[in-house]
Computed example of a mutant assay.
Amino acid sequence: MEDHTSIKAENILKIDDVENYKIHFAVWDGEEEPLDVFVRSRDEWNGWNSWKGGRDDFSRSYIFSLIRFYPQPDKWLFGGIFKVVERKQDHYVVTLEEQYQEYIGRLLIDYPGPKARGRAFYLEKHYLNLVVSQLFDKPYSGEAFCGYENIEHSFSQLEPIFKQNKRDWMAALKNVKGVYLIVDKNNGKMYVGSAYGETGIWSRWGCYIGTGHGWNDELTKLIKENGIDYARKNFQFSLLEYRSMKTDDNVIIEREQYWKRVLLSGKFGYNQN
């Protein structure tokens, strides 16, 4: 039975000449999620719409861009309408249209996505089936705090959270000490660290976001050789333990040593002691 309470995206994003548009379903490119890129930098996100590769995917005058909203299944965040000004050999020259800019990052669309593989499709084959799921008050700026036990976030996911000082994450991580784990997904090596004193997890992880290495010797060498993009692509953070700020620092240090022994991160990972 048809759901008459649903609102079609066409009622908000009204486009008459759909035959002049390609729809861009932006998904994970093997290194990053476009949603993380969008939150981190609008310029970087615009670059996703100018990338050409070996094919002329955006072969029409306009690009209707959607970003896979990975926190929820079958959801897409409206990423803007771009005009293809010029087609060069290795990239497109695009401009962001003023039309519907107020909905960029705010309009969440419900749609299963294309059945075929690829990123660009004829808009008319999908346009009428796009349904409004939610309209955020402000452009999406990163996920809400997920709980201490559910942190398994990449560097690129945490970076916008820390740079924007998201209040819920800051409040949660400022008020706990603990032992954390960084896994290098490129080689499986692990680093066990701890945060204590008066600064909490928030300050310690903020140091990693700012430097890529947090001034740990082995990680510093790695980032100096490969750049901070290595951390963005490969580092994943999680909490092994979290404790009240009233916990004695020596307890945290002892638990850090325990996890180093258990995970053998000194012998096989990035810990030196």
Rank of each mutant, 00 (worst) to 15 (best):
A144S: 14
M170I: 10
V132C: 00
D184F: 08
Y127M: 02
R106E: 10
V132L: 06
Y196R: 10
I223S: 02
H213Y: 05
E149P: 01
I104Y: 08
Y140V: 12
E198S: 10
D168N: 08
K138C: 12
K88F: 12
E159I: 00
P139Q: 03
G214T: 05
K177R: 01
P114N: 01
D168L: 02
N150T: 07
Q89D: 14
T199V: 13
K221D: 10
I228E: 07
R117Y: 14
N150E: 11
E102Q: 09
F136C: 06
K177F: 09
N175H: 04
L135M: 07
A116V: 14
G193Q: 00
S141L: 05
V94C: 07
E124R: 11
K185T: 15
Y196M: 10
V131R: 09
D217A: 15
D168V: 02
N186K: 11
C146E: 13
I201K: 05
F162L: 02
I182Y: 05
M170H: 13
G188P: 03
V176L: 02
P139I: 03
Y122P: 11
I201A: 03
M190C: 08
N216H: 07
V94M: 06
V131A: 07
S154V: 03
E124P: 03
Y100T: 00
W215V: 12
L107Q: 03
T211K: 05
L128R: 10
R167A: 13
K163F: 09
E159D: 02
N187V: 06
K177G: 06
A116K: 15
N165S: 13
I201P: 05
K221Y: 08
L181R: 07
G118C: 04
Y100P: 01
K189C: 09
M190V: 01
I209Q: 04
F162I: 03
Q89S: 11
R204A: 01
